[in-house]
Design a protein around this nucleic acid. Structure first.
Lengths: 117, 117
DNA sequence: ATGGCTGTATTATGGCACTGATGCACCTCG
DNA sequence: CGAGGTGCATCAGTGCCATAATACAGCCAT
């Protein structure tokens, strides 16, 4: 059983969104650089261009990405740090408490698992 | 943004399932005792009986709960420990790696957060 | 200017998960 | 036996997700 939160059966556009966010934070998509085009990323990921566009959408709304019509989308300066701060805050506020409680119930201690690669 | 994994917009039957599992592990639903009836729990939680039934379903399949038609559902002996072991294993195998990677990316260390209630 | 690349809007469609209303089969107790 | 409690099956409705086929608007190098 356990249909908990496997990243497997999440909507495609959310998986892409996470993946893109990670790339921005890690600098794989560096600031000032152009993001992969909607069509390119779609082809690479075997997804629909519209689905990719939907994933990109949220970054535009947050001003982390700038659109130059007819050219492409660029990572805004300072986007990586802003994104990381934002995600970290959200994680601590919305996800971590539940995870912590869950682990406590299962008899697990985060400190013990911190080292295990 | 951040439509990550807030327990808020999870399907009702999954939230119920988690809640029931927690009750069994914690002993709130003790072994040998009868679970709340589908209708009773539905009324209490403001959900549909069928949704509750769907939540119960998975526990039957796993043999953690025994059904007596026309009577009710009972927690099988040893269910709590079996359930905890099963969930703990699944958590470590499927969820923790992703959580750990995610925290690393956000600059968080599980050990630091272990103490904060 | 033209071809080729960008993002975007439109519309339609299929699939699937979630939720819900109703009724039936079963058991227990008085 | 009848009333009221069980779980469960069937059917239907709804909304989100993903895909598809076009078409359009903008930029740029040749």
């Amino acid at each position: 059983m356990n249909s908990n939160r496997p990243s497997s059966n999440r909507p495609v556009y959310l998986k892409l969104r996470d993946q893109i966010a990670a790339a921005i934070i890690d600098g794989a998509y560096a600031e000032g650089e152009m993001l992969p085009s909607v069509r390119a990323l779609a082809a690479e990921q075997g997804a629909n261009p519209l689905t990719v566009a939907k994933a990109y959408q949220q970054f535009q709304n947050d001003g982390l990405v700038e659109v130059q019509r007819g050219v492409g989308m660029y990572v805004v300066k300072g986007a990586a740090e802003r994104l990381r701060a934002r995600e970290r805050d959200a994680f601590l506020r919305e996800e971590w408490p539940e995870i912590r409680e869950r682990m406590a119930r299962l008899g697990l201690d985060p400190a013990d698992l911190a080292l295990s690669t």
